[in-house]
Design a protein around this nucleic acid. Structure first.
Lengths: 212, 212
DNA sequence: CGTTGCTTTGACCAGTTGGTCAAATCAAGA
DNA sequence: TCTTGATTTGACCAACTGGTCAAAGCAACG
């Protein structure tokens, strides 16, 4: 968003359309950065690790991104938006139970399909969200808005009277758990794909929790 | 020099009872290490940070612990036991709903009272639990045992038919969320202490999920 | 008082870190 | 083909990393 274009290398600024090589290498670096940052956090990750994972030399990597910070920032910037998208599509005029169930389902799919992004986010929040704190007001306003919708449903008796914020936290917690604590889940279940059972369980739990 | 003892410093090995100073400094170091490791993970934490947080010089810190690894290991060693203790005290011959509710409650208290420990654990698991993986078999057997108890309750109709493993995951996820994602929870709620509401919500959710 | 052994520290070390730079290489259009 | 600009790299740097060591300080006990 609003790339102020500080890029040190003049030949790489976004005034011209990116070449094929630029596209390929930039995305390779971002994917490698996602791998490494999501596992070790910002401070624990090293440029050498990222460069090797991307199949580039370190100076070459720094040719495409001006700094470690910039790679990380780039990864974070789109993250919160993607992460909140399922919540955003929850509509006040739909069937309450179905809307909430669908939201939880979409969030669980996100955990299954983008576990690295989930862990990157978890790492960032664990460290106190120093590079994400600016986005928290937006987060809060969206959550407050949807919490009001849920509370509206509760007021007219369509769902049980519950604390809507903590319901959202419940869905966040449960869905992200399967991505962030993947190794633990797999160690306990000894199962290739816990997601089908997780989806069934979550639906059962939500239906009962929400029933008027 | 080439002593078979693990501890590099001979005067610090545990053959003698620790002095007052040793006790004080060792615990100061462990507390500081908990602060730093829980925020930045093993790789992201530095000895300088820990030493400063403990109010000691780096060489002095290394006088009490032979390495960074050892401090971390010391912190992890007791962790899993403490963490699983609430689950361990869940008794098959109690009232099912009350037993599960009490377990969840104890786990939530742990998140409230020991958030650093929760985050240390989260950081470790996020990184693939490289220094914890050995303990996972014990974890699995305890969880399997308790899952069998829960399933027994379900079989005789005392609680609803649910997947016991995912019920345990649900409790883990929800309780740890309040410790690990503390900054996010506070940013959304703008509230000093989310735990009373969290406890009420969790009880509501569990009662409805478990009702036969 | 002096001795003894615990405690603390400044100086130091080798390896790693994020990052720079000039020079070399490569790709593609004229 | 040659030229031009994009791409890649080896050598390098200052700051930081985990860790060592000898020497200095300190407490307590006889």
């Amino acid at each position: 968003m609003a790339s102020g274009n500080f890029c040190a290398k003049d030949n790489l600024n976004m005034s011209k359309p990116p070449t094929r090589i630029q596209k390929k290498n930039r995305s390779a670096i971002l994917s490698a950065g996602l791998d490494v940052f999501s596992q070790f956090g910002f401070r624990g990750a090293t440029l050498d690790q990222i460069a090797e994972a991307a199949g580039l030399s370190k100076p070459n990597l720094l040719y495409y991104f001006p700094s470690k910070e910039e790679i990380h920032q780039q990864l974070l910037s789109g993250l919160l938006h993607t992460w909140l998208d399922p919540l955003r599509t929850m509509k006040a005029d739909g069937d309450p139970i179905q809307e909430i169930l669908a939201y939880a389902r979409r969030k669980l799919d996100l955990s299954r399909d983008y576990p690295r992004e989930s862990r990157l986010f978890a790492n960032e929040v664990l460290q106190g969200a120093p590079r994400l704190g600016e986005s928290f007001p937006d987060l809060k306003s969206l959550v407050d808005e949807k919490a009001a919708v849920i509370q509206g449903w509760a007021k007219v008796g369509k769902i049980a009277e519950i604390d809507p914020h903590h319901l959202i936290f419940l869905i966040w917690a449960q869905t992200q758990h399967y991505a962030d604590f993947d190794v633990q889940v797999r160690a306990v279940l000894e199962c290739d794909d816990p997601y089908p059972q997780a989806a069934t369980f979550m639906e059962h739990m939500l239906r009962r929790t929400l029933a008027p």
